[in-house]
């Protein structure tokens, strides 16, 4: 459940940038990783707890998002090029951190694991149940924020930009400013997911946090659920979790335990969804049930 909510939360963060404002990022692992490393480094080196560290994480990621957004939008890097730029920054950071000894390098960084039965909310050390409630609160907050944003002024501007950027600009919308806002909000939200994962797993490896597979995992939920919808990321993450657990059971039951089989099934599901339900499962379902968001 914690993992499901984690991906629901990260998916919602990504959805604000792609689903609402139409900017496809495949480098969200950058914000996840930077957020995780920022909070973990403060805790590891200076003993500063995550409740203080998360502000640094948010600030750093918002700044990074703003820098990438400003560079890309100012220089007219759009579409596929924008996506590749986001990948390039994430990969750059991954290889860079592999060689940065102060943060553990490729060998990773490990946070002191406290006794698992004592809840120490102040340092975010404690039982799995505590982590569950923390991520539940985060996801709920993200849901409320998404719903509010989508029907705010910014939300309508974003949708206008997503559908037709030139037309939006012609109508007098400052597309640069609103796209920047989407990137910064999305990056800052993903930073919190990073802080959470750092303290949940207590170990940090650049290869895992910054890898493109991470970015793909983040975007799978919203795409399967429905890009640009409020409930899509959550529905998608739930389905993926069920799928992952289900395949685990089947794989074990039939004795097919070979590396890669889970990812293969993910790939096939992703393929089926994009071919048959390009607007996602939630959109199809909402249409059937006549639910309006």
């Amino acid at each position: 459940m914690t993992l499901f909510l984690f991906f629901a939360y990260a998916g919602q963060a990504w959805n604000i940038m792609m689903g609402f404002a139409g900017q496809l990022s495949l480098g969200h692992s950058l914000y996840l990783g930077v957020g995780a490393y920022a909070a973990a480094a403060l805790y590891f080196h200076f003993g500063i707890g995550p409740w203080a560290g998360l502000w640094l994480a948010i600030a750093l990621c918002a700044l990074l998002g703003a820098a990438i957004g400003a560079l890309a939008f100012r220089y007219g890097v759009a579409g596929v090029y924008f996506t590749l730029l986001t990948i390039a920054f994430a990969e750059f950071a991954r290889i860079g951190l592999d060689h940065f000894a102060w943060l553990g390098g490729s060998g990773g960084m490990f946070l002191k694991v406290a006794e698992r039965d004592r809840v120490e909310l102040l340092n975010l050390r404690g039982t799995p149940a505590m982590f569950y409630y923390v991520i539940l609160a985060l996801s709920a907050a993200a849901l409320a924020l998404s719903a509010w944003l989508l029907h705010s002024r910014a939300g309508y501007y974003w949708q206008a930009i997503r559908e037709n950027e030139d037309a939006a600009q012609a109508l007098g919308i400052n597309t640069f400013r609103w796209k920047m806002l989407a990137v910064v909000i999305s990056a800052a939200m993903t930073a919190l997911a990073g802080v959470f994962s750092a303290f949940y797993y207590s170990s940090l490896f650049p290869e895992q946090l910054f890898s493109i597979n991470r970015s793909v995992e983040i975007i799978l939920g919203p795409i399967i659920g429905g890009v640009g919808t409020i409930f899509g990321p959550i529905v998608g993450a739930a389905l993926l979790t069920v799928l992952a657990e289900g395949t685990n059971e089947i794989v074990v039951a039939f004795g097919w335990e070979v590396p890669g089989i889970k990812q293969l099934i993910y790939g096939i599901v992703l393929f089926a969804v994009i071919v048959f339900l390009p607007h996602g499962i939630w959109s199809a379902l909402a249409g059937k049930l006549k639910v309006r968001e």
């Binding site: 792609m18 496809l24 495949l26 579409g79 596929v80 996506t83 793909v216 795409i223 890009v227 070979v258 590396p259 890669g260 089989i261 990812q263 293969l264 993910y266 790939g267 096939i268 992703l270 393929f271 994009i274 071919v275 390009p278």
Partner: peptide
């Protein structure tokens, strides 16, 4: 004729299928 991100994800799905089939 579909949006770029749709294509991107289709090919990504194909890529994931290929890599993991090879791995298996």
């Amino acid at each position: 004729t579909r949006p770029e991100h749709s294509q991107f994800i289709l090919l990504l799905a194909l890529a994931i299928i290929m890599t993991n089939s090879l791995l298996i």
